[in-house]
């Protein structure tokens, strides 16, 4: 198995380290020629506007769309979630989104850096107790399509319905989190993603 990590900008190294811990071969993806042969792609945390600019200038934008349309498994964390969403508000009008998971997100919807937080999450699909999650200027999911499975939520005053916010979602072979599993030593979410890749392989 070979997993790519989109390496245009962001915390690429943490995802590569997580994959190394799980014994998976990985490579950074910066140019179109880095895409062929991948079994899956991780889109890291970082600034989604920057990645959007670099997707265009690197020539990756359209080849990546074709791969996603063809069912390439993908895991987007924070900025990666924004790129995988259907729509984004509070961003820039020219910001690229792939619509691989039918959610709407509000950029920095939890607030600025002073509102960044960490918290334990209940994730029923993961065995072994709560998952510690780090949210950095995180996107806020404010719409969830019918085909999307919500795997975890949190209570937060910024919630659009006044109670809970989806923070971990899955649609088909694509997983997205508003938080950064790569910033903690717990590898269960990366392992879940690897099991999704294997599922698709069969």
């Amino acid at each position: 198995m070979l997993v790519g990590v989109l390496a245009l900008q962001g915390d690429v190294g943490e995802h590569l380290a997580a994959l190394a811990d799980l014994g998976v071969r990985a490579r950074g993806v910066r140019r179109p020629e880095d895409l062929p042969g991948l079994d899956a792609l991780i889109l890291p945390g970082g600034e989604s506007t920057t990645m959007s600019v670099l997707l265009e200038s690197s020539g990756l934008a359209e080849p990546l769309r074709k791969e996603l349309d063809g069912g390439l498994p993908a895991f987007g964390t924070c900025a990666g979630m924004i790129l995988m969403a259907t729509s984004v508000s509070g961003g820039r009008p020219d910001q690229r989104t792939y619509g691989a998971v039918d959610i709407g997100v509000r950029r920095n919807g939890f607030g600025r850096q002073l509102a960044s937080f960490e918290s334990d999450l209940d994730v029923p699909v993961l065995e072994g107790g709560p998952l510690h999650a780090v949210f950095i200027r995180a996107p806020l999911v404010d719409r969830v399509g019918e085909d999307v499975d919500v795997l975890a939520t949190i209570e937060h005053p910024a919630a659009y319905d006044g109670s809970v916010v989806p923070v971990l979602c899955r649609q088909g072979p694509v997983l997205v989190s508003a938080f950064h599993p790569e910033l903690t030593a717990d590898r269960r979410l990366h392992a879940l993603f690897l099991s999704m890749i294997e599922e698709r392989g069969r």
Binding site: A7, L8, Q9, G10, D11, V12, G13, E14, G45, G46, E47, T50, C78, A79, Q113, L114, S116, F117, E118, V134, F135, I136, R137, H180, L183
Partner: peptide, 16 residues
Amino acid sequence: ATTRVKRGLAEMLRGG
């Protein structure tokens, strides 16, 4: 405002 959260934003700016 934890150390993890403060360093976390710097980590997100990598490569930028």
